[in-house]
C-alpha cells in the first residue's frame, strides 16, 4: 500500500550538528498491516512517521502510495489519506473550538472546504452516535470547548476524529505516552477496537515493548535510522521482551551500555 524506497533524511545538514535520522530506509506496508515500531531515542521513529505524513520532504528516496508517487506532496495534501494522533494530547484537537466544531473540521479531512455552514444540524446526530462509542459522556457536551476536556478525553476525541473519514493509513506517535496508565489502557483498547472494526492500516510508535508485542501483526525495531529487526505474523507471536532485548544486544555488542534504550 505505502512503500518507502531508500528514504534518507538529514537534520541540520551541512552544519556541525548534522544528524542522519533515516538512512536509505525502505519499508513496504501492506494493506491491513498493523505495525508497531520500537527503538531508542533518536532511532528515527518519529522521523519515519513525520516523513510519511509529509511534515518535511526527504533528502533522497521515494514514497509511493498505491502506486502514486507522493514524495513531493505537502503535508496538507497527504492528509487526505492519513489520520494522525500525536503524543501531546493538546496537539490533535483545537482547544478554543467546541467538540462539534472539532468533529466538523475532521469530517472534512481531505475534502473541499467552502462557505456552507461548518456544523450542520444533520451531522450532529452522527457526531453524537460516534461520541457515544467512547463512553465518556461527551455526546451530551457537543457545545463544550475542547479545552475543558482532560488529556485522556482529548486523546480519545483525536482518535475518533482521525478515523471519522476512513484513513488509508493511521499514524500513531506514542499516543498514550503522556497519559496515566489507566487512561493509557483505555485509549489503547479504543485504538484496537477502531483499527479492527475499520480494518485500518496502522503504524504505531511506542516505547513500551509489551505493547509492541501485544498489538499488531508486524514489529519493527529501529536503531540509528536503520531497521534492526523486522518480524511478522507467527514469528512475532513467539517473541518475548527478553528476546527483543537480547536481539538488540546481539546486534549492538558493547554499544548497548551507552545507549539510552527505554525499557518497560
Amino acid at each position: 500500500m505505502i512503500v518507502l524506497d531508500e528514504y534518507t533524511k538529514y537534520f541540520h545538514r551541512g552544519s556541525i550538528n548534522e544528524v542522519i535520522a533515516l538512512k536509505d530506509f525502505s519499508l513496504n506496508v501492506k494493506n491491513g498491516d498493523f505495525i508497531t515500531i520500537i527503538g531508542s531515542n533518536g532511532a528515527g521513529k518519529s522521523t519515519l512517521l513525520n516523513g510519511i505524513a509529509g511534515v518535511f520532504l526527504p533528502d533522497s528516496g521515494k514514497i509511493t502510495l498505491n502506486d502514486t508517487n507522493i514524495t513531493n506532496w505537502p503535508e496538507h495534501r497527504r492528509a487526505a489519506f492519513i489520520g494522525r494522533v500525536f503524543q501531546d494530547p493538546l496537539l490533535g484537537t483545537c482547544g478554543a473550538l467546541s467538540i462539534e466544531q472539532n468533529m466538523a473540521i475532521a469530517a472534512k479531512r481531505g475534502k473541499h472546504r467552502g462557505l456552507s455552514i461548518g456544523v450542520k444540524s444533520k451531522h450532529r446526530k452522527c457526531f453524537q452516535a460516534e461520541l457515544k462509542k467512547l463512553d465518556l459522556g461527551l455526546e451530551d457536551r457537543l457545545h463544550d470547548k475542547v479545552g475543558l476536556l482532560s488529556g485522556g478525553q482529548r486523546q480519545a476525541l483525536t482518535l475518533l476524529m482521525a478515523s471519522l473519514v476512513r484513513p488509508n493509513l493511521l499514524l500513531l506517535d506514542e499516543h498514550t505516552a503522556a497519559l496515566d496508565p489507566k487512561t493509557a489502557n483505555q485509549i489503547l483498547d479504543l485504538t484496537k477496537e477502531i483499527i479492527e472494526k475499520e480494518n485500518l492500516t496502522t503504524l504505531m510508535v511506542t516505547h513500551n515493548m509489551n505493547q509492541a508485542l501485544q498489538f499488531g501483526n508486524r514489529l519493527i525495531m529501529l536503531h540509528q535510522g536503520k531497521t534492526l529487526l523486522d518480524v511478522k505474523a507467527e514469528e512475532k507471536q513467539k517473541l518475548t521482551v527478553e528476546n527483543l532485548i537480547s536481539k538488540f544486544y546481539a546486534s549492538q555488542g558493547d554499544n548497548f551500555a551507552s545507549d539510552r534504550m527505554v525499557l518497560i
Binding site: 492528509a79 496537539l91 478554543a96 472534512k108 475534502k111 455552514i117
Partner: peptide, 28 residues
C-alpha cells in the same frame, strides 16, 4: 457568518492549532 462556515472554522483552527489543522488537510 463567515467564521461559522467550513472555511471559517478552518481559519479559527489555523490560529489556534496549525499542526492539527494541517494534519486534517488544510493548507495553512
Amino acid at each position: 457568518w463567515f467564521l461559522h462556515t467550513e472555511l471559517g472554522l478552518a481559519m479559527l483552527a489555523t490560529g489556534n492549532n496549525p499542526k492539527m489543522i494541517t494534519s486534517l488537510g488544510v493548507n495553512t
